[in-house]
C-alpha cells in the first residue's frame, strides 16, 4: 500500500537539501529564508488543523472556575477529570451513547452484508440495467436528506418507525448502503478477473468464487468502508434531529447539541467540551488505525465532504 510518488534517489537528495523548494539552489541566504518560511507554513497548517480540538481537550480538563477566568492559559492550571465524571454520570448522555453505538453498528453490518453482494454484482456480473444502476448508486451518495424529511416524517409515523432505533437504522441505510456499494464495487473491479476465473472454469459457482476467493482479499477494503460508514452514521444529525423526540432513540449528536440549549450564561462549558471529546475520540482512534486507506479512498470521490 504505497501512496508516495516515485522519485529517484538523486532527486530525493536534492529535494531534501532544498526543503522541497525544487530549485537547484544550494545554501544561499534566499534558500535558507525559503526553508524557514516553509517550516513556518507547516507549523501554521498543523496549528490550524489541530488547535480547535486541542482547545476542547484543554477546556474539558479545566475546573469550572478556571474556564471562565479571563486570559485563559494554553493548558489547564489545575487539571481535573470532574467534567468527564459529570458526563459519564449523566444517564441521558449515556443512553444516547448506547443508542448511537447500536444504531451505527447495525448500519455498518447491514451495509456491509448487502453492500458486498451488490458491489460484487456491479463489478463482475453482466446483467440488464447495470449502467443505469451504477449511476443511480452514485447519485444516491449525494442525495440531499432535506429533500425527503417531510415525506419521511409522515411515512415513519404511519409505520410506527418515528422515534425508534430501528427506524433510524433503516433511514441511515439510505446513505450508508449506496456509499458502501460504490466503494466496494471500485475495490472488486480493481482485482484482476483471473483471480476467480480459474475457479469458475473448474465449475465453481459465482457465489463460491466470491466467498472463497474475492471476499478474503476484500477484507481490508471492507474494514475501511465499514469504518467510514460508521463515522457517517455516528455523526449524522439531520435525520436524528428530525425523527427522534425522546431519549428512547436520541443519538449522541442530539445529546451534545442539546447541551447548548440552556441559558446563555450558565452553560457548563467544560462539561460540554468533555462530552464533545468523548463523542469524537472513538472516531479519531478508528481513523488513525486505517488512515492511509482513508486518504486513498477519499479521492474516490464518494467519501463525505
Amino acid at each position: 500500500m504505497e501512496y508516495e510518488i516515485k522519485t529517484s534517489p538523486e532527486e530525493l537528495d536534492r529535494l531534501r537539501a532544498t526543503g522541497g523548494s525544487g530549485s537547484g539552489a544550494r545554501r544561499t541566504p534566499l534558500a535558507i529564508l525559503g526553508k524557514v518560511g516553509f517550516i513556518i507554513l507547516i507549523f501554521i497548517i498543523l496549528l490550524y488543523t489541530l488547535f480547535p480540538f486541542y482547545w476542547a481537550i484543554v477546556s474539558s480538563l479545566k475546573t469550572t472556575q478556571e474556564i471562565v477566568r479571563p486570559n485563559p492559559t494554553m493548558w489547564p492550571m489545575e487539571p481535573t477529570l470532574e467534567n468527564y465524571r459529570t458526563v459519564f454520570k449523566d444517564a441521558s448522555f449515556m443512553r444516547a451513547l448506547a443508542n448511537s453505538a447500536i444504531i451505527s453498528t447495525s448500519v455498518v453490518i447491514l451495509s456491509l452484508v448487502f453492500g458486498t453482494l451488490t458491489a460484487y454484482a456491479m463489478a463482475r456480473l453482466r446483467f440488464r440495467g447495470r449502467v443505469f444502476f451504477m449511476y443511480l448508486i452514485l447519485s444516491m451518495t449525494m442525495f440531499p436528506g432535506i429533500a425527503i424529511i417531510g415525506a419521511l416524517f409522515t411515512i415513519m409515523r404511519r409505520f410506527n418507525a418515528y422515534d425508534t432505533i430501528w427506524g433510524l437504522v433503516i433511514v441511515y441505510l439510505s446513505f450508508a448502503l449506496p456509499f458502501t456499494v460504490w466503494v466496494l464495487a471500485n475495490f472488486f473491479r480493481a482485482m484482476p478477473p483471473d483471480l476467480e476465473q480459474a475457479a469458475l472454469v473448474d465449475g465453481a459457482t459465482q457465489m463460491v468464487a466470491l466467498r472463497q476467493i474475492l471476499l478474503p482479499l476484500a477484507v481490508p477494503g471492507m474494514v475501511t468502508t465499514g469504518l467510514l460508514a460508521f463515522i457517517e452514521a455516528w455523526s449524522e444529525f439531520l435525520y436524528a434531529r428530525t425523527f427522534t423526540i425522546s431519549e428512547k432513540a436520541k443519538t449522541v449528536q442530539i445529546a451534545i447539541s442539546d447541551f447548548t440549549g440552556n441559558t446563555q450564561f450558565e452553560v457548563p462549558f467544560g462539561t460540554r467540551m468533555a462530552a464533545a471529546v468523548v463523542v469524537t475520540i472513538p472516531l479519531l482512534v478508528g481513523v488513525m488505525l486505517v488512515q492511509k486507506r482513508i486518504i486513498a479512498g477519499m479521492t474516490a470521490g464518494a467519501v463525505k465532504g
Binding site: 498543523l46 482547545w55 444529525f237 463523542v279 469524537t280
Partner: peptide, 24 residues
C-alpha cells in the same frame, strides 16, 4: 504526520466542530 493531522478536522462530527468553534 502532517497529512494524518489533516484527517482530524475531517473526522470530527459536524456537530462537534460547531460546538468547538462556538466555544472559541
Amino acid at each position: 504526520a502532517v497529512r494524518t493531522s489533516m484527517l482530524v478536522p475531517w473526522a470530527i462530527p459536524t456537530v462537534v466542530s460547531s460546538l468547538l468553534w462556538s466555544w472559541m
